[in-house]
Design a protein around this nucleic acid. Structure first.
Lengths: 190, 190
DNA sequence: GACAAACACGAGTCTTTGCTCGCATATCTT
DNA sequence: AAGATATGCGAGCAAAGACTCGTGTTTGTC
């Protein structure tokens, strides 16, 4: 049931996977533990379901960012066009950070995280390749991994903030991306 | 006992705080659970002890980096002189990443993490201020937080690697720092 | 209204794991 | 050597939490 998943999401977001209890999830959804287990066989199933849902959403997100014009647009616009949707995604998916960006709660989930990360990295490489078809694949792979790492590292700086502080933090993040990627994509628009 | 701490450290590094069991720590140290509890009152005490030890080491690390010449040296050297010791620290303290950079295992530990982070950030601000006494405090605070975030985000990219791959990853990290900090510290050496 | 099927319930079971306690062994004192 | 003290042991206790099951309640059909 959908409301169970939403309850699990909010609990995970608040206390993380390890400290989340199935009873709390059940009561948050105004449902008994017994009923909960009629829909999800175990606690991990919640994380799996969320991962699947998030993966799908990220897929859609990429599809909307990834169109031809991206190849020639100024770098600052490219950064805006990618960072903003990802930040928006993390606002809508508050459990993502707690579940998949922290340390892996279980070995099985670690695999899931790996897959999500690989997918995003592959998408980024494809994006980069549109701008620099001449670049070596390995260099682009590094740039993608570093970009993901920067995002992961700076996201916790942004998430808890609101208003002008948040804007400032986002500006800082974009600044990091801009200055890091500039040497790679400098001579593109002309 | 020291060997217990070392055992705890290696277990934490391998499976993280939540999945580490006191029995495993005891057996890793070739000691019975009973004996373990004669030295450390509970599981959290291990994390506390490690945090204290790491804090001390970070203190020393900072003292060795933080001397006057740092104010006038070229930016690339400044980055080298700070990044390398920190990476070295994380090699010697393998549990640090698992314990204090992942999601907080318990509310009490979260406080500890906060303190460690604040301390490092404060040190960085002091360092930055040596170079730019004219800059606004708040800007330096942002730069410090962002620098810490970048380090946290890129560290997992570096830790599992060895040899040339590791060197490449470190070069990437330093590149990010250089390009991010350059606008702030550009006009320093002349 | 009567029966049946499906669903929801929550007190209880079972496993895991942090932690203890009574006994055994070693070390020290005289 | 013999008692006294300290230290180490590991089987077992207790709490927490994932998960179940017998019972009650609702819903659908005649």
């Amino acid at each position: 049931m959908e409301s169970l998943l939403r309850a699990a999401e909010s609990v995970f977001a608040e206390v993380g996977y390890a400290r989340a209890t199935t009873n709390l999830i059940a009561s948050r959804a105004s449902v008994s533990p017994g009923s909960l287990y009629q829909f999800y066989p175990n606690k991990e199933a919640f994380a799996e379901a969320l991962a699947a849902q998030y993966a799908e959403e990220l897929e859609g997100l990429h599809a909307s960012v990834f169109h031809g014009t991206i190849a020639t647009v100024p770098l600052a616009e490219l950064v805006d066009a990618t960072v903003d949707p990802f930040l928006d995604f993390h606002r809508r998916a508050p459990a993502f950070e707690a579940l998949f960006l922290g340390a892996a709660a279980s070995p099985e989930l670690a695999g899931r995280i790996q897959v999500l990360h690989e997918t995003v990295a592959a998408r980024l490489i494809a994006l980069f390749e549109l701008r620099r078809p001449d670049a070596k694949r390995e260099d682009l792979r590094w740039a993608a991994d570093v970009a993901v790492g920067i995002f992961r590292g700076l996201l916790p700086l942004i998430t808890p903030l609101k208003g002008t502080k948040r804007s400032r933090a986002i500006r800082e993040m974009k600044g990091v991306f801009l200055r890091y990627l500039e040497p790679v994509f400098a001579t593109r628009t002309e």
